[in-house]
């Protein structure tokens, strides 16, 4: 599974990066590397079983807080 993940992300990097390097779009390359790295880290964490924070739980919490403030 981890191997598959690594392969997928290497594939994505190979697909996008050479074109960016050729055009010397360093800013784009930096953003690409950063976002791809973030995506890879998060996916890897999920694959090895780290519990990622669930944004829906946060949204649910916020909504409940908001509703409690309201006088209904």
């Amino acid at each position: 599974m981890i191997l598959l993940l690594v392969l997928a992300f290497i594939g994505m990097a190979l697909f996008e990066a050479p074109g960016l390097v050729r055009r010397r779009w360093w800013r784009e390359l930096a953003v690409f590397a950063a976002t791809l790295g973030l995506a890879f880290m998060l996916s890897l964490m999920r694959v090895i079983g780290v519990d990622l924070p669930n944004p829906n739980k946060i949204i649910t919490l916020l909504v409940h807080m908001f509703l409690n403030v309201l006088p209904t």
């Binding site: 992300f9 996008e16 960016l20 779009w25 791809l36 973030l38 995506a39």
Partner: peptide, 14 residues
């Protein structure tokens, strides 16, 4: 950015 294409794959995987 000068193009949105580099964002497609990372954002997609996220």
């Amino acid at each position: 950015m000068r193009s949105y294409l580099p964002l497609v794959l990372p954002v997609g995987s996220m």
